[in-house]
Simulated assay, not measured.
Amino acid sequence: MDSLGSLNAFVQAAEARSFTLAGRKLGVSSSAIGKAVARLEERLGVRLFHRSTRTMTLTPEGSCFLERCRRIFSELEAAEQELAQTQGAPRGKLRVSMPLAGMLMMPALSAFMRAYPQIELELDFTDRLVDVIDEGFDAVVRAGDVSDSRLMTRTLGTFRLKLLGSPGYFARRGTPRKPEDLESHACLHHRFATNGKLERWPLRRGRKDFELPTTAVANTIEPLISMAEQGLGIACLPDFAIRRQLEEGTLVTVLDAHLQHSGTFRMLWPSSRYLSPKLKVFVDFMAQNLFPA
């Protein structure tokens, strides 16, 4: 490998904490990565990694050198992208991981595809915790807080959970006026695919605690929307997923004053990666169109 190739081998190995994974990403053997790192250490006169049969961690010198290398590659990618921008519209493949609820974001995604036909979207829908860098994603969309210092983030918008049912259901079973009234209703629950737990309804319960009945459980949102529309019970759903149903009157909300919830969707991408034109337009477009006012 040349000098730039050795630096890239080091960066990939440092981020993956594995010669094998780094080699797989670069299309070379793990021994080639190991030799490149060894030559780099010999040239620099310092150890970059603490290595054992089970683990591989950066030395203090290695951590410092990694940040410098990231800046070098960021500047190189920036220069390449500046030249690419002179060639026309953003183009190329964009690998994005979306939550399962992202299926309900398809109107915004479809609008992006129409606006930027030369960008090829590769979408992976899952609720598992993906490793953006190791799995080669350009970006991920997730709800919740971010604790990975390797990632940059931009807020796409906020959402709230709502309790909903069909007008027909409430005509038959009555409309709950306080949280305790839910004990006598059919409740449709969402189960997290990642840990198998039921999503807690964000009710202000006061002094009295109670168990919500379980009439049906699903690990994706779409079946719950359908069951609620068919009058089979009350579901707790994010507001962005049921805008059309609320506008058309097929679903109505209850107990709004007794709910306490606010969630945030964010776009995340590797901090070592220059914000390429295709990624920049995707981030900007989704921030403007995913949760329209």
Rank of each mutant, 00 (worst) to 15 (best):
E77I: 01
R204L: 14
T153G: 02
G45I: 06
L66V: 08
A32S: 12
A218E: 13
R128C: 10
A9Q: 08
D124A: 12
R191M: 15
Q288I: 01
R68V: 13
T250Y: 03
A186F: 06
K278F: 00
R68M: 11
L66C: 08
A228D: 05
D145Q: 12
H189G: 02
R177L: 09
L182F: 00
N195T: 11
Q12A: 14
L232C: 06
G249W: 02
A101P: 00
A89H: 08
F285E: 10
D181K: 04
R207T: 14
Y116E: 10
C64R: 12
F10W: 07
L26E: 04
A228I: 07
P90G: 08
R273Y: 01
G92I: 07
L4Q: 07
A216K: 09
N8A: 13
L21E: 14
G206L: 10
G144S: 11
L268M: 12
F285R: 12
E80T: 02
I221W: 04
P238Q: 06
D134F: 00
L224H: 08
A16I: 00
L182E: 00
T214I: 15
G157E: 11
R266C: 10
G62C: 09
L246I: 06
L83E: 13
E247G: 04
V46P: 01
D284P: 04
F159C: 07
D127H: 07
W269F: 12
P167E: 13
